[in-house]
């Protein structure tokens, strides 16, 4: 019995790898993009679900990774063109570095301050794009076409699948390790964690840095995937979509946000609009998603899957 989840995981990977055989290119492109989005949701979960610190500015690091990589990759902006893979990694490191500085300043304090600062951060970074538009390209962003890591839809798909698998494996490993246990101790009670000798600030910052790193990597990967970078990678709607996915899937589970991200992203970009058109209500897909988020937040704050599992579990016991 114990091997079944592993077997299932293996099967999932096989299915994902085989998808290009059966699925047309345009949907493959969307699914690949979904994998990159899933990394954002999972990395957010690493911070929020495991240490309990509500990061409302995850997109700061998505955008940072994206812009840093894009600037380093195309010679048209700053005259340098390093290898895309190196640019992506540097994008992740830059995000992690900024995360480190913000973390050591804000995570010393308990309560709401971390949420407040991170809520404002993406807006600040978005302003930098407009103010220094010679560098960042302002509202319209810029293109890195011709200097991207991947150029066919098939290679894009496998690239993002690989990145997702590596990220999930890495983050799984982190949360299963002793570090992960300390994260969870902080989440459950900071006082208690401190009393047993855990340097809570240190571990909160560590979680934040790791989470930012993966967000930066994914941001940089998105740029390589679609060839353009723009300020919407910093913006609030993306943040909400990340939150929605993670909350839907269940915080503190890694796999939950993964599934949540896939469902939400495909729904938003695929069938939700048609569904709304049928109902002919004066709403758009974002209204529906936000309503779902509120409902889940109130009714099942531990996520749909967690809730289902518990309910089914109860029934089996009776």
């Amino acid at each position: 019995m114990k091997n079944i989840p592993k077997l299932f995981g293996f099967l999932m990977i096989l299915v994902s790898a085989a998808l290009p055989v059966v699925i047309p290119e345009a949907y493959l492109y969307l699914i690949g993009l979904t994998y990159l989005f899933a990394i954002l949701a999972i990395s957010w979960d690493l911070m929020v679900g495991y240490t309990g610190q509500v990061n409302l500015g995850h997109t700061t690091f998505v955008g940072l990774g994206a812009y840093v990589a894009a600037l380093l990759q195309t010679p048209l902006r700053m005259g340098i063109a390093i290898h895309p893979l190196a640019a992506i990694i540097i994008g992740g490191l830059a995000a992690a570095l900024v995360g480190f500085f913000i973390g050591i300043i804000t995570l010393r304090l308990r309560g709401y301050y971390f949420s407040l600062v991170t809520a404002i951060l993406p807006l600040v970074f978005m302003q930098t794009v407009f103010v220094w538009r010679d560098v960042f390209g302002g509202e319209e962003g810029f293109s890195i076409a011709g200097y991207s890591l991947v150029d066919t839809t098939l290679s894009k798909y496998y690239f993002s699948l690989a990145l997702l698998l590596i990220s999930v494996a890495a983050m799984r490993w982190i949360v299963k390790s002793r570090i992960g246990l300390r994260f969870m101790a902080i989440r459950d009670s900071e006082e208690l964690a401190e009393s047993i000798g855990i340097d809570t600030t240190k571990y909160k910052v560590l979680a934040f840095v790791l989470s930012s790193f993966f967000a930066g990597i994914a941001g940089a990967a998105i740029v390589n995937y679609r060839y353009t970078v723009g300020p919407e990678l910093y913006d609030v709607p993306l943040m909400l979509l990340i939150i929605l996915s993670a909350v839907l899937g269940g915080l503190g589970t890694i796999y939950g946000p993964l599934i949540g991200a896939v469902v939400i992203y495909l729904a938003k970009n695929w069938w939700l609009r048609d569904l709304i058109e049928i109902t002919s209500l004066p709403v758009n897909d974002e209204v529906v998603l936000y309503a779902v988020l509120i409902a889940i937040g109130i009714l099942m704050p531990h996520g749909i899957f967690h809730e289902l599992r518990e309910r089914v579990g109860e029934r089996v016991k009776h």
Binding site: A26, Y27, Y29, L30, L33, E139, E140, Y227, G230, P231
Partner: peptide
């Protein structure tokens, strides 16, 4: 994603529209 869907799945012969510079660039 949507442009790709129109072009390859719906087999659109021509695409019309688009709005906002950054989105257009992509």
């Amino acid at each position: 994603t949507e442009f790709r869907r129109l072009a390859t799945i719906e087999n659109a012969d021509v695409v019309i529209g688009g709005f906002s510079s950054g989105v257009m660039l992509t």
